[in-house]
Each structure stands twice: as C-alpha cells, then as structure tokens.
C-alpha cells in the first residue's frame, strides 16, 4: 500500500459518500445518471467476485463491502425509494448501458491477462470478469457526463461527486507509476491503459470544473 493508492481509495470512498449524502439527506438524485450507477454496481459485482474466496487484508475486504453496499443501495434508492425516485430525470438519462457492456465483455474475452481460451476454468472466468469490470469502469461515467451536458445547472454535490470519481483514478495512475518503479514484475498493461482512458474521459470535465472554481462561477458544461 502506498500513499497514492490510499489517497485514491479514500477519494473514491469520499465520492460515494458525497453521493449517498446527497441522496439520503436531501432525498434527491437530480442530475445523477441511474445508468452510470447501475454500471458501477455491475463493475463492483464483477470485480469483487473473489471477495469470499481470496482474502487479502481487512482493509481490502472492508472497502469491497463498502463499495458493493453503497453502489447497490444507490441504485435501490434511485429505482425504488418513493421520494428519491421522483427526482430522477429519466428523459435526460438516455444512454443505453448495453452499448457499453457488450463491447467490454467481448474485449475482455479477447484481451485479458490469461489469453488462453482453452482452459475454461474458474480462474479464467474470474480473470475475464475482472478484466470486464476494468473496461466497464473506464466507460461507466459516460452516461453521467452526457447527462451533465444536458442538465443546465449542475448542483455542487453532483459536481463534487464526479470530480472525486475522476480524481480517484488519476491517483491510481500515480500509484501504478510508483509500484512500477518500486516493485519487481509490476506490469499490468490492461489495468494501466483502461485506467488512463478512464481518467482522460474526465479531462474536459476537469477543465470546466477548474474554470468554475477559479472564476467562482456555477459549473456548466458546453452542450
């Protein structure tokens, strides 16, 4: 564990808490994309399949449970909570998740660290699911970014949520650079490339977020 990775995990945790805070306290999910939240629930479900079979540390297990619990409860709130669901604007949240999930699944079958298709074993299945979750996480924010461009006035909590979500993966990139130089054989091209793509997708959001912070004006993304 290094400072970049810890900072990344804490930033990721904070992003989830900001969103839960918004939904739980003001009982509103205005401006939040349910599609992105559902994609994140799938990301965590497919990445943490090994939560019961492989034990790494109390921290690792606890964080996995927090991310699984929070992502599924956010989806539950937005779908079924009688007050929160009213503030969900489904007409603005039109991105079709399957056009993201299918290519990620096909890509995970073709490009993963195992590469060997012949051994259809549980470990191969775990590798494919884990790789799928990496690719899916890289693009899971797209429905949310599309929705932000359509929602004219982005409220502060939503802006902070997206900012923290992008920042966490940027910190992970620093963590991968650090581990590459300090550990033997630490090479994970698949993780690095999908993490880089993920962070680059936030590039324009970061730019407008920084501008709004610097000029102290409301955050607005160009249509």
């Amino acid at each position: 564990m290094n400072i970049f990775r810890l900072a990344g995990d804490m930033t990721h945790l904070l992003s989830v808490l900001v969103l839960l805070l918004k939904i739980h306290t003001i009982k509103s999910c205005a401006g939040i994309s349910l599609k992105t939240q559902e994609l994140y629930a799938v990301v965590f479900a497919t990445r943490y399949l090994d939560i019961f079979t492989s034990y790494i540390s109390p921290y690792n297990t606890m964080m996995k449970l927090i991310f699984l619990g929070s992502s599924f409860s956010i989806v539950w709130y937005m779908r079924y909570h009688k007050i929160v669901r009213r503030s969900y604007d489904k007409d603005q949240d039109t991105f079709r998740p399957y056009i993201l999930m299918l290519p990620c699944l096909i890509l995970a079958l073709l490009i993963n660290e195992k590469f060997t298709f012949k051994e259809i074993s549980t470990s191969f299945f775990l590798f494919v699911m884990w790789t799928f979750s990496l690719y899916l996480e890289a693009v899971a924010i797209l429905p949310q970014l599309v929705m932000l461009q359509r929602t004219r006035n982005i409220d502060n909590l939503t802006g902070q949520y997206v900012f923290l979500l992008g920042a966490y993966r940027a910190l992970y990139i620093l963590n991968w650079i650090y581990r590459y130089f300090t550990e033997e054989h630490f090479v994970h091209w698949i993780t690095w490339i999908s993490g880089l793509v993920q962070t680059l997708l936030y590039a324009d959001f970061f730019y407008y977020y920084f501008q709004s912070w610097k000029n102290n004006v409301k955050l607005q993304l160009p249509a």
């Binding site: 990721h12 090994d50 690792n60 660290e113 470990s123």
Partner: peptide, 10 residues
Amino acid sequence: RDYIDDHDEL
C-alpha cells in the same frame, strides 16, 4: 502468477 498477485488492488 495466480489470481491473487494480480488483484491486490480495489
């Protein structure tokens, strides 16, 4: 290299 080595990160 088994599954654990590669997946110690969240």
